[in-house]
Nucleic acid binder design. Sequence first.
DNA 1: TCGGCCATGTAACCAGTTACATGATTGT
DNA 2: ACAATCATGTAACTGGTTACATGGCCGA
Lengths: 192, 192
Amino acid sequence: MALEHAILVSLLEKPGSGYELARRFERSIGYFWTATHQQIYRVLKRMENDGWVDVRDVPQQGRPDKKEYSVAGLGRAALSSWLHDPIEPESVRHDLAVKIRGAAFDDPAALIREVQRHRQTHRNRLAHYLAGEARDFTGPEAEAEATGTETPLDAERELQHVVLRGGIAYERMMTDWLDDVLATLARFGPGR
Amino acid sequence: MALEHAILVSLLEKPGSGYELARRFERSIGYFWTATHQQIYRVLKRMENDGWVDVRDVPQQGRPDKKEYSVAGLGRAALSSWLHDPIEPESVRHDLAVKIRGAAFDDPAALIREVQRHRQTHRNRLAHYLAGEARDFTGPEAEAEATGTETPLDAERELQHVVLRGGIAYERMMTDWLDDVLATLARFGPGR
DNA sequence: TCGGCCATGTAACCAGTTACATGATTGT
DNA sequence: ACAATCATGTAACTGGTTACATGGCCGA
């Protein structure tokens, strides 16, 4: 299980409320982990009970009060121990691949539309990631990154960048592969 | 949910027992879906109750008897309806990416070993997939595939091939990205 | 005789999804 | 007036993992 740990990392990067965490899971953390607000609130409560996080009530005007969570000593220790614990390289789960092999036993026309939809989604994600990269990882710090003159404080940033590059590589790979799938389907689809 | 449908596709490709399905889920189907035997037996029972599959007792000598499952009309219909049902492009779940971002708050040395382990696993999978491709997708049928002179019976084969190419592209992307991760970690890891 | 393969299952648990619920404020 | 955003939750369900269980055959 990594949701707890993803939350710990996110709170270490910046403390925040359950709501704010949910938003982050739609953006940057969403590159590699997803979670709904329901799940986050539930896990956050458990983490609070276990003493992994501290809570602070933050009254706000013009909007509802919020609870700001930050990582406690026990949470930091839990994260550290998890980081030292080897995990198995996870295996993939691709519904779409099941569908593709299933298309051999069904009309491929519907599948072509489905694959096109997916390709579009991955294209969009790729564009979104590239825009984020241009926004957040170019400029003076990128200079330091390239020339190796960075400070320890840049480590966090650079690790975020390399994870983003992973997301970019993934989306690029997927769009290319889905092009391949479409070409393959086109070869025997319409002629029959 | 796609396990039911993955099983249907696999049984359409070739009928077999729960045990055999479990083995397939360790091999070819494992490129894009995993399942343990416990899960398979449970789902198979439900599919049998729902009339999606037919069972036939096959006595064997020298080894335990087995139940051979094959797809029934209802199962075929269920698969077809699922194939026509659009699914959301799934989002990724990468424990390793959580760890990488978490390494900013911990000793990166342990992470380097972990990343190296993962890279090795992906390298091995890549080699395994490439060997499978060379074994199953070269020869006379590949000729037909390349020249477009294939028959409808080759569709099943070609779709299997394109899914395998997806697995290959994925493993290649992962090994490349993990090289990138290691280079990034090396840049600020040992110097501090 | 010991481990590995063939073959099938039960039970408990854990994580994730979906549906439902409330209520204030801000902008169109 | 209505929709969107901020903010927090409960409850039921589903799917997946882990542990446990049985038992015969085959080869080293």
